[in-house]
Structures are given as C-alpha cells and as structure tokens.
C-alpha cells in the first residue's frame, strides 16, 4: 500500500518497532502501514466515529476522542513517538497539544501545511481571497483548520516551548525539496521534535 507523500515522510521518521500514538489517525492508513512495514505497536485517536470504525475493522487499537481534551489521559512517556500529521492546524490549543505530545512520547512527528507557501501568499495578495490550493482544498467556511501557521511561525513556537528540532523534511508538489527558502517554497513540512 502506498501512502501519500506527506504521510510517507512521517512514516520514514518512525523507527522500527516503536510504540506509536497517531493523533488524528483518520481511517488508520498510516498506523496499518507502520504495523505491517515496521512492526510498530500503534494506537490512534480520531474524532470521527466512521474513521474509528474503519480503523478498528483493520485490527488497530483506535479510540474516538479529541486531542485537545483526551491526551491528558495518557501517562508520561507512554510512547516512543507521537504523530500529529496534518492535524495541528485543526487543534483548539496547538501549543498545549505540542507540549502534551512531548510529555506522553519521547519524540513527536508533526506535519502541517505551510500557510506562507507562495501560492497561498499569491492567493491572498493578488486574489484578495483565502486560498484554496491542492494542499488546502477546502473553502474557509468549511475547513476544520482553525490555526494556520507558516514554517517560521511553527519554529518560533517550538522555540518558545523549549523543544528541539531533530530533523525537518519539506515537500512541494508531493516531492521533497531543500530547506532553502522553505517558508516560501515548501507546501508542507514534517518536523521531528524532542525535549532537549
């Protein structure tokens, strides 16, 4: 089974045999891939009952829940890695969630769409409209994304929270690209974070 490029970049960051919590795991595609290809012991959380039913039907351990509220249940250091893929921007309290990730896991992989990609900037600057792009395909009035950030904004928050960036991957058009001018040229970013 092939994953979409940003999920593949997240999967690449997860070590073999790790204990993983995937927050916003959707129908469990990533967790199933990690279980089958890397022998990962995975758990998931998703807000949608239909997604959870699909994930459980795949044999995964997934609970219906809300990362903003339910991460508090997990004990410190319960996981090797917490995954937050394409979900940060939908959180009510992204800073709190990031801090929680690195309480319950030693490392966190966080991927998100870059809101300062040139196509987004262009849409706002020249079109005068909120962007609808391949990475942000949903109109402003329907999107579940409530906290957009740029790559530089994210790095700023990581700094403020006293977290450490272990590695970063940038994607554009589904292809990895160099970190040069990432805040302008990358559509998506995948960061591996830890506590220093």
């Amino acid at each position: 089974m092939s994953l979409r490029p940003s999920l593949q970049a997240v999967a690449d960051a997860v070590p073999h045999g790790a204990r993983v919590l995937d927050i916003g795991c959707g129908d469990g595609a990533l967790l199933a891939h990690l279980r089958d290809s890397k022998n990962v012991e995975g758990r998931g959380i998703d807000v949608s009952a239909a997604n959870v039913a699909a994930a459980v039907a795949r044999g995964l351990s997934v609970v219906q829940g809300d990362a903003d509220a339910d991460l508090a249940d997990y004990p410190d250091g319960a996981f090797d890695m917490a995954i937050l893929s394409d979900t940060l921007q939908a959180m009510r309290a992204p800073a709190k969630v990031l801090a929680e990730l690195l309480r319950i896991a030693r490392r966190a992989v966080v991927s998100f769409p870059n809101f300062c990609h040139w196509r987004v900037r262009g849409s706002i600057l020249f079109g005068g409209r909120m962007p609808v792009t391949p990475i942000l395909p949903v109109s402003w009035y329907e999107t579940t994304n409530i906290h957009f950030c740029s790559i530089d904004d994210f790095l700023n928050l990581v700094d403020e929270l006293g977290l450490k960036v272990e590695s970063a991957t940038f994607l554009s058009g589904g292809v990895r690209r160099s970190p040069a001018l990432a805040n302008l040229l990358a559509e998506q970013a995948v960061f591996v974070l830890s506590r220093p």
Binding site: R43, A49, V52, V56, S61, V63, Q64, G65, D70, D73
Partner: peptide, 21 residues
C-alpha cells in the same frame, strides 16, 4: 464509556472505542 477508555489509556491498555449514531 469514555471514563473506562480514559482509565484503560492511563493503564496502558490496547483499547478501541467509538460512539455510534
């Protein structure tokens, strides 16, 4: 049910849960 799920997560159990319509 969520109270049970919370406790199972705190205990580190492999748990699945969903609320169906």
């Amino acid at each position: 049910s969520k109270r049970i799920v919370s406790a199972l997560n705190a205990a580190g159990a492999a748990v699945s849960f969903c609320e169906l319509e």
